[in-house]
């Protein structure tokens, strides 16, 4: 009776209407724009005409797209792998009976809430080639300073390392939660069979955290493909355009050069990827929402 009460729409609707108005309407508008030549060349009001699939056709011949995809893929794959490895290691580390676990966990989650745009500046300070502390450490250990700001792949790596620093804690908290839900009896049984910690990890812990790892990997993939703030504030997309990610390129095309129709088409490729990944994701986890 209560569960089906007519009042249920009163509670649900405000949020749903908001999402329809401010997420789904813009999304459909943007799909429409992707078939137009929308631009704001007069810098005051945008104008557009339908041009069919012309924008999508020009993506293939856009030489800039290739490099931005390479940068984005490097960051996406690199950051997903690094954060998963480091995060899992940290989770394993803190899953021992250490005193003060909660304090450590709080400290470790701090990077997650730092504004990425500010982190770019942190990168600028840390990775500075002459006075930055990272090159100082490398030199102190006998190496030669890395050209973080002037070499394309080093600059991409600096962005990758900053992103890894920020998001490893995310993997850490989720995998730690997964590890802590493993019943103690399983460990006790395993310890009777083997004395090796690695064997216990491989045969008990890993298989049981594997689903959570899959979930986190999907979230990381989606999140890193959006990266824009860190390269933006750290290097302005440079050196040259080495740290311009795909999202960054969409942003510049649409809102610096005001080529909005073409930018919408570029963005829609990302939307389709996002829809595919989110379908897989929620198909996996939606049973929890019943």
């Amino acid at each position: 009776m209560y569960k089906k009460s007519r009042a249920r729409y009163f509670f649900l609707m405000p949020g749903v209407v908001w999402i329809l108005a401010f997420t789904f309407f813009p999304l459909i508008f943007s799909l429409y724009l992707s078939f137009t030549n929308a631009n704001m060349r007069n810098f005051t009001q945008a104008t557009w005409n339908l041009v069919g699939f012309q924008n999508y056709a020009s993506i293939g011949s856009d030489l800039r797209v290739g490099e931005t995809v390479v940068t984005s893929l490097y960051l996406t794959v690199g950051s997903t792998l690094l954060t998963l490895t480091l995060g899992t290691f940290l989770a394993w580390l803190f899953n021992h009976d250490l005193p003060g676990l909660r304090i450590f966990r709080s400290i470790l989650t701090m990077p997650l809430f730092a504004a990425p745009i500010a982190l770019g500046f942190m990168g600028l300070i840390l990775f500075n080639e002459t006075s930055g502390s990272i090159n100082s450490i490398i030199r102190g250990l006998g190496g030669t300073g890395v050209r973080w700001m002037t070499d394309s792949w080093s600059a991409r790596t600096a962005v990758l390392l900053l992103d890894t620093w920020q998001w490893s804690p995310f993997v850490f908290v989720i995998i730690l939660a997964a590890m802590q839900s493993i019943p103690e009896e399983l460990y006790e049984a395993a310890r009777l069979d083997t004395g090796s910690g690695w064997a216990v990890f491989r045969s008990i812990t890993f298989p049981l955290i594997a689903p959570a790892l899959g979930t986190v990997a999907l979230l990381r993939l989606v999140e890193t493909f959006k990266i824009l703030d860190i390269p933006f504030s750290m290097l302005g997309g440079g050196p040259g355009s080495a740290t311009q990610t795909y999202s960054y390129y969409v942003y510049i095309t649409g809102l610096r050069n005001f080529n909005m129709g073409y930018a919408s088409a570029l963005a829609y490729i990302l939307v389709i990827i996002a829809i595919i990944i989110s379908t897989v994701y929620f198909w996996r986890v939606r049973a929890r929402f019943e």
Partner: peptide, 9 residues
């Protein structure tokens, strides 16, 4: 999951 740049314009 949506890329923010898609709704920015």
């Amino acid at each position: 999951f949506l890329p923010p740049v898609a709704t920015l314009i």
